[in-house]
Simulated scan of single mutants.
Amino acid sequence: MKRRAMPLPRTLIALSAALALAACDSQPALETAPLRGAAIGGPFALTGGDGKVHRWADYDGKWRIVYFGYTYCPDICPTDVQRFSQGLTQFEKAEPELGAQVQPIFITIDPARDTPEVVAEFVSNFHPRLVGLTGTPEQIEAVAKTFGVFFSRGREGEGGAYDMNHSNVVYLFAPDGSPVAILPANEGADAIAAELARWVR
Rank of each mutant, 00 (worst) to 15 (best):
A120V: 13
Y72I: 11
Q90Y: 08
P128E: 12
P111S: 09
F147W: 15
S26F: 12
V170R: 00
A94Y: 11
A181T: 09
A45M: 05
M164I: 15
P78G: 10
A38I: 05
G135C: 06
E158S: 09
E156Y: 05
P28F: 09
N168F: 12
A57L: 02
F44L: 01
T108N: 06
G87K: 01
G87R: 00
V170K: 00
L30F: 10
M1E: 13
A194L: 12
W199S: 06
P43L: 02
G37T: 08
Y162K: 06
M1S: 15
T47P: 03
E95A: 14
D176W: 03
V143A: 04
A17E: 08
P137W: 14
E141L: 13
E138A: 09
Q86N: 14
A120T: 11
D60R: 06
A100W: 03
S26Q: 12
G188Q: 04
T11P: 03
F68W: 02
Q86K: 13
P184I: 11
W199T: 06
D110I: 12
L98Q: 05
A194Q: 12
F122W: 09
A189W: 02
V149F: 03
E117S: 14
A100M: 05
A174I: 00
L21F: 12
G99W: 04
P104H: 00
A5Q: 14
T71G: 09
W63Y: 08
S152H: 06
G159R: 01
D25W: 15
A197E: 06
R198D: 10
P7H: 00
K52P: 07
A14M: 07
S16R: 07
R155V: 12
C77A: 13
V200D: 02
Q101S: 14
I109E: 02
A29Y: 14
T47E: 08
S152F: 07
E195M: 07
M6L: 15
G132R: 02
A185K: 03
A100H: 06
P179C: 05
P96L: 08
M1N: 14
F126T: 04
A17P: 03
K145M: 08
I105M: 00
P96D: 05
F173A: 07
V123G: 01
E97Q: 15
L133T: 01
N125H: 15
A181K: 02
D190L: 04
V123T: 11
I40E: 04
E92P: 03
A185I: 09
P9I: 02
W56V: 01
Q27K: 15
A20V: 15
F173D: 03
R201W: 07
A22W: 06
A181H: 01
V81S: 04
F84A: 06
A18T: 11
L12Q: 00
Y72H: 15
T32R: 14
A197K: 09
M164Y: 08
V81W: 01
G42A: 04
V200T: 02
D110K: 09
T115W: 12
H54E: 02
P184S: 10
R4V: 15
R153P: 03
L183M: 10
V180K: 00
A23D: 10
Q27A: 14
G154H: 07
S16K: 07
G148M: 06
H127T: 09
Y171K: 03
T32S: 15
